[in-house]
Design a protein around this nucleic acid. Sequence first.
DNA 1: AATCAAACCAACCGCACTATG
DNA 2: CCATAGTGCGGTTGGTTTGAT
Length: 224
Amino acid sequence: MRKPCCEKTEITKGAWSKQEDQKLVDYIQKHGEGCWNSLPKAAGLRRCGKSCRLRWINYLRPDLKRGSFGEDEEDLIIRLHALLGNRWSLIAGRLPGRTDNEVKNYWNSHIRKKLVKMGTTTTTSTALDPKKPSHHRDNKVPLLMQPDARNPILFRPPATTLDQKRAPNHDDEVDVSDSMSINGGNQLQTGVIMSNKSCCLPDLNLDLTLSLQLAVGETQQSDI
DNA sequence: AATCAAACCAACCGCACTATG
DNA sequence: CCATAGTGCGGTTGGTTTGAT
């Protein structure tokens, strides 16, 4: 059995105070992100490193947008979710200033209900097989989205600093306004960071009601 | 005004992946 | 190769807020 990430004793849990936030922000501004395990001690916080990381990523990061989601963002989330399933970090990576937690919460509290009401989806929180434990990752990625050069969208890591660190192969990323065709004509300027590789590939058609089925068909055929 | 239910969202938990020794 | 630490991700929980009665 794996050891817990931190000792249960002397660890504060629950809501963060302003003082704690300030300590965390000050520390990260001075020393940068990373080394989350040693950060709490160094920053004078009685928190688990994971908790610090989460607080920073989901709440304190200066580039966060906060506030309610726009229609464009909602539309994009719906389309990306149809493509990616519950890969919230990937989805959030295409929504500048949004976090995976925020997107996930928004999906579960707003969009999912909306779609169910419209009869568009019967999605549960575990997108693919609700019976199987959710942490079985091999079950999370739809067949369509198994790593595959035909799906350039998958090869772009989330646009967070940490993920960029983790994916040195993507340091050739350039800022390109990624335009997607929404609702058969409206151009949605997402302004996300795309890799050179993916921007050279054909425009993504995220009109999922049609292309997803087609793509699934293609994938299944090619897998045979 | 009080109570209850629903909605929302921050935070936690546990697993998987990756790097390192 | 194996064990372990560090980190990231997705699902879930629980406290708070809002709305309905």
